[in-house]
Design a protein around this nucleic acid. Sequence first.
DNA 1: ATAGGTGCAAACAGTTTGCATGTAT
DNA 2: ATACATGCAAACTGTTTGCACCTAT
Lengths: 124, 124
Amino acid sequence: MERSTRQRQAIRAALREANRPLSPGEILEYARQQVPGLGIATVYRTINALVEEGSVVAVELPGEAARYEMAGKSHHHHFHCTSCGKVFELMGCPGDLSWLVPPGFHAEKHEIVLYGSCPNCPGA
Amino acid sequence: MERSTRQRQAIRAALREANRPLSPGEILEYARQQVPGLGIATVYRTINALVEEGSVVAVELPGEAARYEMAGKSHHHHFHCTSCGKVFELMGCPGDLSWLVPPGFHAEKHEIVLYGSCPNCPGA
DNA sequence: ATAGGTGCAAACAGTTTGCATGTAT
DNA sequence: ATACATGCAAACTGTTTGCACCTAT
């Protein structure tokens, strides 16, 4: 991640300007508005590099392709609206969950996703 | 799911006898001990049918391929070993997490995955 | 000038499907 | 006997890699 290129600027801009986690395909679509010839391979290489350098984090939701968002947010989890499909950020965390694991296991991190309906979706 | 064949018996047995969720590849490996010529396509077709009829449930972990376990177990979560990649069942649950969601949201269910090392893997 | 970055296409891995053959009923 | 099930291979999707060309430094 040594040089600043048009494609990297476009990919960074897409992630910065979107207020939700984006999939590689969404990043490609967005960044192509700035750099028409942009290839999917460059998107993957760039987001992998950005993740590696720590400026972007992967948001991995069960059953869905990984999405990416800018790093620097505090520890948080996500809420997946089962009606409209949007993903929202949550602020709290239940804290240490290592008491859940049997002896011999060693818990290092956890992932929590809540499912339900968001304020915009009246469903139940 | 009308006929009882050797391959289906072997696939059911693998899922029944394993005390953890299995990936399609793991099911294939297991079931081939009974039915050597078993193909991966049959595994996929069978687990999809079993999920459809409700006797097996998919365990979808963030960023990972879906695993499968027998249905009918009580509410539980999973532990994913970051070293060997195997998935284990946990028996506890932090309980109601609806306090995590902001006003206007309605939480219906949650998914929790712990990551770390299992007893068989050196504590990476 | 030159090392690093890009685009294309091929390579891969996981999953699904088409089709001829096999088999439970 | 006959419809359903299986195995193989090809098709597909999402992600990674090899390589010649391009470009920020």
